[in-house]
Simulated assay, not measured.
Amino acid sequence: MPFLLDDLRADVARRYDRLGLPSWPDPHADVHGPADDEYGRVTDPERLRIVHARATAWVDVLVSRLGARTEPVGPQDRTALPGEDRGLAVVPPRDGAMRLLLLEREGDADTPGLPAPLAVAVVRPDVVVERVPVCACDACDPGSEALLDEVDQAIGHVVAGETVVLRHPRWSATWQPGGAELTGGGRRMRFDRAMELCRRVHAGERVRLPWRTEAFAGAPWGEPG
């Protein structure tokens, strides 16, 4: 739903820009690759908080423009362990749309003093569709614009009803337009088979899933007001 995402994303960008947060170019845009000493090094870790500020701008827009509401991540989320997840859930205004969770997970930060990455999840805290950044070291730094785009893409696809997640005890598949991932597959599940199932679930087909597989998909949240 480009008409929905373009409008919402522009509003998110306007609200975010008012904050005057740091921005920086891709430090590797004009070189062949990162230097050896960039691996494991984190320069100015506080600037990575821009990903959480961007997520907060999204929450403001979803509440004010679509009529969503927020609620804490609490005991109803059986997979949220005390002290592990901080953040909130955004409840869509439309039945059939997926609940969005925006979380900070201290356990994902492998460097002392480094801000916890943003985990974008649907329905439950354990159904994560994206982590930003995946790695915070200088070698993996793509620049601020790319980080913000990752946040926008992950949240935007959920809001537009364009995210499908399949969860099995031994593998997990995530599908969105323009991107797909399979972890733990191998002989248990082929990538092409997993993506076929995801696309059929997204299309609303009746799909016979492998035993013990959960499917997470939802309708668009609605048009901006």
Results as ranks from 00 to 15, higher is better:
1 M>I: 06
1 M>S: 14
2 P>R: 10
3 F>H: 12
3 F>P: 11
4 L>Y: 03
5 L>T: 09
5 L>W: 15
9 R>W: 00
10 A>N: 15
18 R>I: 05
18 R>H: 13
19 L>Y: 12
22 P>M: 02
23 S>K: 13
23 S>F: 06
23 S>G: 09
24 W>I: 03
26 D>A: 06
26 D>W: 08
28 H>E: 09
29 A>G: 14
30 D>H: 12
31 V>H: 08
32 H>S: 14
34 P>R: 11
34 P>A: 15
35 A>N: 08
37 D>M: 02
39 Y>F: 15
39 Y>R: 12
39 Y>P: 03
40 G>L: 02
40 G>V: 01
40 G>S: 02
43 T>Y: 00
44 D>H: 07
48 L>N: 04
48 L>R: 10
49 R>E: 12
51 V>N: 08
52 H>T: 03
53 A>W: 05
54 R>F: 10
55 A>G: 08
56 T>K: 10
56 T>N: 11
58 W>C: 04
59 V>Q: 01
63 V>G: 03
67 G>M: 08
68 A>R: 07
69 R>M: 09
69 R>S: 11
70 T>M: 10
72 P>F: 00
72 P>A: 06
75 P>N: 05
78 R>F: 10
79 T>W: 10
79 T>V: 10
80 A>R: 13
82 P>A: 14
83 G>D: 02
84 E>F: 14
85 D>M: 11
89 A>W: 13
89 A>L: 04
91 V>Y: 08
93 P>M: 12
94 R>Y: 07
95 D>N: 11
96 G>L: 06
97 A>T: 05
101 L>E: 04
102 L>C: 06
102 L>I: 11
102 L>H: 11
102 L>T: 09
103 L>D: 06
103 L>V: 13
104 E>I: 05
105 R>W: 00
107 G>R: 12
108 D>V: 09
109 A>I: 10
111 T>Q: 07
112 P>N: 06
113 G>P: 04
115 P>D: 10
118 L>K: 02
118 L>W: 08
118 L>F: 08
122 V>Q: 02
123 V>H: 14
123 V>E: 15
124 R>V: 03
127 V>M: 07
130 E>G: 05
131 R>N: 03
138 D>I: 11
143 G>W: 01
143 G>C: 05
144 S>H: 13
145 E>H: 12
147 L>K: 09
151 V>P: 07
152 D>H: 12
153 Q>D: 14
153 Q>I: 02
153 Q>M: 06
155 I>A: 02
155 I>Q: 02
157 H>V: 00
157 H>F: 14
158 V>C: 06
158 V>A: 05
164 V>G: 03
165 V>G: 10
168 H>T: 01
169 P>K: 04
172 S>Y: 12
175 W>S: 03
176 Q>F: 02
177 P>Q: 11
179 G>F: 13
180 A>R: 11
182 L>Y: 14
184 G>A: 13
185 G>A: 05
186 G>L: 06
187 R>E: 06
187 R>Q: 02
189 M>H: 03
191 F>P: 02
195 M>V: 12
195 M>I: 13
198 C>F: 11
200 R>K: 04
202 H>I: 00
202 H>F: 08
205 E>Q: 06
207 V>H: 01
208 R>Q: 15
208 R>V: 09
209 L>M: 04
210 P>S: 05
210 P>Q: 07
213 T>C: 13
214 E>G: 03
214 E>Y: 05
216 F>P: 01
220 P>G: 08
222 G>Q: 06
223 E>P: 00
224 P>I: 00
224 P>M: 12
